[in-house]
Each structure stands twice: as C-alpha cells, then as structure tokens.
C-alpha cells in the first residue's frame, strides 16, 4: 500500500495531471501578476501555485515532485520571498519612509503599474507557495513514515 502510494496514482490520473498542472500553474501566475488590477494577489496566487505542485505530488508520488522542486529549493525560495519582501520595504527609505511607494505609478489598469505592489505580490507568492508546499510535503512524508513503522 505504502509502496504503491509512493509511485503515485493510476494512469488516468497521471494523464489528466499532465494536462492540467501547467494550466493551474499558469492560472496561479496570472492571479499573482494581476493582483493589483483584478481580484487576487500574492497570497491566493501563491496557494494556487502550491496546489499545482501538491497536485503533482499526489498524482506522481514524491520522487517526481522532488525532481521538479527539491526540498532545499523550497527553503531557498521561501527565504528569498521573505527577504525580497523586506528588501522592497527597505527600499522605501530612498523616498522617505518604510514601505514608501517609490517606483513609478504608471497608468491604472496596466500590468506594469502601481509601483511596489507587483514586486511585493511576487515576493509574497514565492513565500506562500514554497511554504505551503513544504508543509504539505512534510505532513505527507510524516504519514508515509508512520505507515512504514506500523507495517
């Protein structure tokens, strides 16, 4: 049972996953990058991106998922997101104070508008996506380890 789970689910699920994972990832990136124009933002988009990787993890097992995004890469991405967010906040001191919107505002409804909000969204997306996928992986691996011990 445990060995079967490591290899992933049936062929039907794997085929559907191959088709849908890219679309889910693309939708997550869309939600993140258009967070300042339409509903969405870094948190929701980051969770959707994490869900795409969880989808991969459930369908193909942990080996394939780790080939796409390894454990060390996850922690690097999460720390990068947190530091990037803090760095953007500190850049505000150029203009005067913490979290000052120093970048050009641009025209409303354009993709490259709203100054620091787009980079902030991307930083939060990295943090949330990598962090939630790391939590999911840790809990699934813990369950596999517990099942193995019970055997």
């Amino acid at each position: 049972m445990s060995k079967e789970r490591e290899q992933g689910m049936s062929l039907i699920v794997k085929t559907i996953t191959r088709l849908t994972v890219g679309l889910i990832l693309l939708y997550g990136i869309y939600i993140v990058t258009h967070g300042h124009v339409s509903p969405g933002g870094g948190f929701a988009g980051g969770v959707i991106i994490a869900l795409a990787f969880v989808h991969l993890l459930l369908a193909f097992g942990k080996d394939t998922a780790f080939k796409v995004l390894s454990e060390s890469m996850m922690s690097i991405l999460e720390s990068t997101g947190a530091l990037l967010f803090l760095l953007i906040a500190l850049i505000g001191f150029v203009g005067g104070h913490f979290f000052m919107n120093v970048l050009p505002k641009g025209h409303p409804f354009n993709l490259f508008s709203a100054g620091i909000i787009l980079p902030c969204n991307i930083a939060i997306c990295l943090k949330v996506g990598a962090g939630l996928f790391a939590i999911a992986v840790a809990l699934v691996l813990l369950k596999l380890a517990v099942e193995k011990e019970e055997k």
């Binding site: 967070g35 300042h36 124009v37 339409s38 509903p39 969405g40 933002g41 870094g42 979290f99 919107n101 505002k105 641009g106 025209h107 409303p108 409804f109 508008s113 709203a114 100054g115 620091i116 909000i117 902030c120 969204n121």
Partner: peptide, 12 residues
Amino acid sequence: GATNIVASILLD
C-alpha cells in the same frame, strides 16, 4: 495606481 483597492490597502 492600483485598481484593485484590496491590493492597494494590503501592500501600500
């Protein structure tokens, strides 16, 4: 400059 008011409040 953000048309999504939620994003402008959360991040600005």
